[in-house]
Simulated assay, not measured.
Amino acid sequence: MHGIKALAFDAYGTVFDVHSVVALAEKMYPGKGKELSQLWRSKQIEYMFLRTIMGRYIPHNQNTEAGLKYSLKYLGLPGGTSERGALMDAYERLSPFEDARQTLPKLSGLKRAILSVGTPSLLTNLVGNAGITDQFDALLSVDEVKVYKPHPRTYQLATDKFDLQRHEIGFVTSNYFDVAGAKAFGFQVIWINRNGAIPDEVGLLPDVALTSIAEIPNLLG
């Protein structure tokens, strides 16, 4: 990889651990916390894709709550306003991965942005609650273009913000649909493959696959 002048990071699953809600979910629903978190995340992504295809965008907090409602119903768990409210609040307080927290300051020589499906207020709260607001030059939300990733308009937000060519931006994500979308758009793509996954068969590969964000400084030299 060469010629990178800015880095754009996916938020959910890359910088922030979406399954850090498991502890609360397990406390609320003993024996079901992990299953709830996994199903919730799966439905959240499914609804993102459906709404983009149908042209029926809604803000990510609403999309996330819809996925939560389905998951609670499917698992036969109590899902009143108070239960959903507690879990949704936890989603604004997701824990950052330790490799992200430790590595972001080492990348201060480059422009850095979050490029996420989260709304502006969600992203502001997320990085603020984690104490890493100062590690980003911009928080870019798909809410501005009213479609979800991996639509090309979402990635255009980064080129417009930094006034750079597509190949001058390194895109960092753990989600393979995001790898494919960003690569198709023309970014140099860094796949953070923490769990040893295999690439999806969509004809698009990342420029490099790493097991940790901590490897990025050495990669970029």
Rank of each mutant, 00 (worst) to 15 (best):
G3M: 15
I4C: 12
L7E: 01
A8V: 15
A8L: 15
A8W: 06
Y12P: 05
Y12M: 05
F16H: 01
F16V: 02
D17A: 07
D17L: 04
S20Q: 04
V22I: 15
V22M: 04
A23D: 14
M28N: 03
M28G: 06
Y29L: 10
E35F: 04
S37I: 06
S37H: 11
L39S: 07
S42M: 12
K43I: 15
Q44R: 05
Q44P: 08
E46L: 08
M48G: 13
L50G: 02
R51W: 14
P59H: 09
P59N: 08
N61E: 12
Q62H: 10
A66R: 01
A66L: 14
A66T: 06
A66V: 08
L68W: 01
L68K: 01
L68S: 01
K69L: 07
Y74F: 13
L75K: 02
L75R: 01
L77E: 04
G79P: 07
G80K: 08
T81I: 10
S82N: 07
E83K: 07
R84G: 09
G85H: 09
A90Q: 12
A90L: 08
E92H: 14
L94P: 01
D99S: 02
A100K: 02
T103I: 01
T103K: 00
L104W: 00
L104F: 00
L107T: 00
G109N: 10
G109V: 06
G109T: 06
L110Y: 15
L115Y: 11
L115A: 11
S116R: 02
T119V: 14
T119S: 15
S121H: 14
S121D: 13
L122M: 15
L126G: 00
V127R: 04
V127L: 08
G128H: 05
N129S: 09
I132Y: 00
I132F: 01
T133N: 02
S141R: 13
V142I: 13
E144D: 13
E144Y: 07
V145R: 11
K146W: 11
V147M: 14
Y148N: 03
Y148Q: 02
Y148F: 15
K149M: 10
H151N: 14
R153C: 07
Y155S: 07
Q156E: 15
T159Q: 04
T159W: 11
T159I: 14
D160Q: 14
K161V: 15
K161M: 12
F162T: 12
D163F: 11
L164A: 04
R166G: 04
R166T: 11
E168T: 04
V172W: 00
T173N: 05
N175R: 03
F177I: 14
F177C: 03
D178R: 08
V179Y: 12
A180D: 06
A180R: 09
A182D: 05
A184W: 02
A184M: 13
W191R: 07
W191E: 05
W191H: 06
N193A: 03
G196T: 09
I198T: 12
P199H: 06
D200N: 09
V202R: 03
L204V: 15
L204Y: 07
P206T: 09
V208D: 03
A209P: 08
L210K: 06
I216H: 00
L220A: 04
L220E: 01
